[in-house]
């Protein structure tokens, strides 16, 4: 962060001027793993709910079967959208935030991101709470790398 930007933030804090983010991918340089974490959690919640959803019996009335199908479609749609969002957020961090120099600090960086992105795809294709838990853990690890990289920048 440049000297002028640091001073601006300091003055803003003293005057009570809040930051208002016009978030974008490129080229604003604002990165945050929080959204990937929320998306991964949503995928896991949908998987858990889908796995626990009771199936109507063979003699269930037509409206109950229809409601059941509707619930499944809505949950799958939410899971699909959030797995895609999670993947997109991870790819932004991987390709834009982390620079080649980060490899000396995190030698497994590429492997970590590659596996996490693969988990996003797997979670789109399947309903497996164990795998969505793995995705949440993978995103948490990436969040940890991000915060370590941020801390290193400030030194």
């Amino acid at each position: 962060m440049s000297f002028i930007r640091r001073m601006t933030r300091l003055v803003d804090r003293l005057l009570g001027i809040e930051p208002l983010y016009a978030h974008c991918d490129v080229p604003c340089g604002i990165y945050d793993p929080h959204l990937a974490g929320v998306s991964a959690k949503t995928v896991h919640t949908m998987n858990t709910k889908l796995a626990a959803l009771p199936t109507p019996g063979p003699n269930a009335p037509a409206n109950e079967v229809l409601e059941h199908r509707n619930t499944i479609v809505r949950m799958v749609q939410t899971k699909e959208a959030h797995a895609q969002l999670c993947k997109q957020e991870l790819l932004i961090l991987w390709t834009d935030y982390f620079k080649p120099e980060a490899l000396s600090m995190f030698p497994d960086l590429h492997e970590t991101f590659w596996k996490a992105a693969k988990l996003c795809s797997y979670n789109k294709q399947h309903v497996d709470p164990a795998k969505s838990q793995e995705l949440m853990d993978a995103v948490a690890s990436i969040s940890d790398l991000f915060h370590k990289a941020e801390a290193a920048k400030k030194k």
């Binding site: 601006t8 803003d12 001027i17 809040e18 930051p19 208002l20 983010y21 016009a22 978030h23 974008c24 080229p27 604003c28 604002i30």
Partner: peptide, 21 residues
């Protein structure tokens, strides 16, 4: 509030101050 980021350009640019009601 102070704007950070480019997603509202060309109307709002990074560093500009705005008032919110």
């Amino acid at each position: 509030m102070r704007v950070y980021g480019h997603s509202m350009s060309p109307l709002l640019h990074p560093g500009e101050l705005v008032l919110v009601d």
